[in-house]
Design a protein around this nucleic acid. Structure first.
Length: 435
DNA sequence: TCTGGGGTCCTAGGACCC
DNA sequence: TCTGGGGTCCTAGGACCC
């Protein structure tokens, strides 16, 4: 059996954990650049604020209902996530941290001491008590059904945040409650296709043939979804080592600009800065890259016609994680990409083809001592930035045009209460209130 | 004025080789 | 008249996730 533990309105719940006065109010958290809504309290959902809604549209609604918006504070959310996951890891034999606010648990053998339903309720209570983060928990024989049970638990008050699907009758009932577009793995395109076929609920999707699923829902992926809905487990828990960051197969840093950019110099500055940040991520997971992509994006809402993004990919002769070297390659890519009289709204740098650092072959004629020196320089740089804050030290190329043009907005951010000494939670000792 | 960011996996089709 | 076929590798693009 699998459990899927999902934090409710996670970013908003993190803000509420430190500001109890926000309880019961419409509260939202904004995406980077304060662009759109990425997390909503249930009160915010009720007044009609949709996921992904641009902030400027949500603003009047929030004002009217005395709600509040916050810029996203990833230092805080990341740390709160680690606390929640740490507790879950202690409570189950195996855990897969699926996203910042979700985890799958393997519950094999857990029924011996208490019922799975009692276990789920106890777990939820403990997480709430230790972290102030509310969760919902779905428990079922497959990961896809556990996700579905979680959905139903979120929706029906009668479930009281926890739903166990054990018998065939329970499963059939739950499948009927969930629209097909809410099944894990069914996105907008597939949902449209399914509706055209008269398949509107998870229950009817569970009855399509293997061949049909293969043909119309992306091959093996679709076939797997259907089997999992039928109760046949096809997806295992993917555990990860708990110390150090999860090693990714690609690493990216992309951002929208504060204002659209046409001139080359500030774009070059932005791309250099984004390359630096992506290279830091690379080194943090002890990887080196042999493939670099730079892309530029134009506004989808402006007068310019599609395509909205264009990119250039370079295959590197030797895998590297050296910021200076990567900035040089990125500038080469940018020169190929940039067109005069275009107004760019965003840019990004992506590294693919990752290898474990230190395994790369030395380039012919390259001086080993020189390489060693560069590696140490990067390590020093990372340490300084980690101790004194991101961007304390970096490359001059990454500064061009920053303040005037490409740096984004983040005007409504709350303090990083738990990870920054400068921003610790302050308790006002001479009054009765927190400040 | 103002519309996010970072990932994964899969398939189709071309290039290339024998 | 007759013009192979199969395997592998790579990449672009689609679809999905949170």
């Amino acid at each position: 059996m699998f459990a899927l533990v999902d934090c409710n309105s996670f970013y908003v719940s993190c803000e509420q954990a430190f500001q109890p006065r926000l309880a019961g109010k419409p509260v939202v958290v904004l995406s980077n650049n304060d662009g759109c809504i990425v997390s909503r309290s249930s009160e915010a959902k009720v007044i009609g604020i949709r996921m992904g809604m641009p902030y400027f549209q949500a603003k009047p609604l929030l004002a009217q209902h005395h709600g509040q918006a916050f810029s996203s504070n990833y230092a805080l959310y990341g740390d709160m996530s680690r606390r929640v996951m740490g507790h879950l890891a202690e409570a189950a034999p195996e855990i897969e941290v699926y996203s910042i606010d979700e985890a799958f648990l393997n519950l094999t053998g857990m029924q011996r001491t208490e019922s799975l339903e009692a276990y789920g309720r106890r777990l939820r209570h403990e997480v709430l008590q230790y972290t102030h983060i509310p969760t919902c928990i779905g428990i079922a024989p497959t990961k896809t059904l556990a996700k579905l049970a979680n959905r139903v638990a979120k929706r029906y008050d009668a479930c009281n945040h926890v739903l166990l699907l054990e018998s065939a009758e329970q499963r059939e009932w739950a499948l009927k409650q969930v629209p097909v577009e809410e099944v894990w793995g069914i996105g907008r395109r597939y949902a449209l296709k399914l509706h055209e076929q008269g398949i509107t609920t998870a229950a009817s999707l569970a009855r399509v043939s293997d061949a049909w699923a293969r043909k119309h829902l992306g091959g093996v992926v679709g076939a797997r979804i259907v089997r999992e809905l039928q109760g046949q487990s096809c997806l295992e828990i993917i555990p990860q080592d708990t110390d150090g960051p999860l090693a990714r197969q690609s690493v990216a840093f992309t951002r929208s600009f504060g204002t659209p950019l046409a001139a080359y110099p500030p774009l070059a500055g932005a791309v250099a800065a984004f390359t630096s940040r992506a290279a830091e991520k690379l080194r943090r997971q002890h990887s080196a890259t042999n493939m670099l992509t730079v892309f530029l994006g134009k506004s989808r809402f402006g007068p310019e016609p599609p395509p909205y993004t264009s990119s250039v990919t370079l295959n590197l002769p030797v895998a590297t994680s050296d910021t200076a070297e990567l900035i040089r390659y990125a500038q080469t890519a940018l020169k190929k990409l940039w067109r005069p009289n275009s107004h760019y709204q965003k840019a990004g740098v992506v590294f693919d083809g990752l290898e474990t650092a230190g395994q790369q072959q030395l380039q012919l004629f390259e001086d080993a001592g020189q390489v060693e020196l560069r590696v140490r320089l990067m390590a020093e740089l990372d340490q300084l930035n980690s101790r004194y804050g991101a961007g304390t030290i970096g490359f001059a190329a990454a500064l061009a045009g920053k303040e005037e043009s490409w740096a984004g907005k983040k005007n409504l951010r709350t303090p990083a209460y738990t990870t920054s000494f400068e921003e610790l939670w302050r308790i006002n000792m001479d009054g009765n209130s927190f400040s």
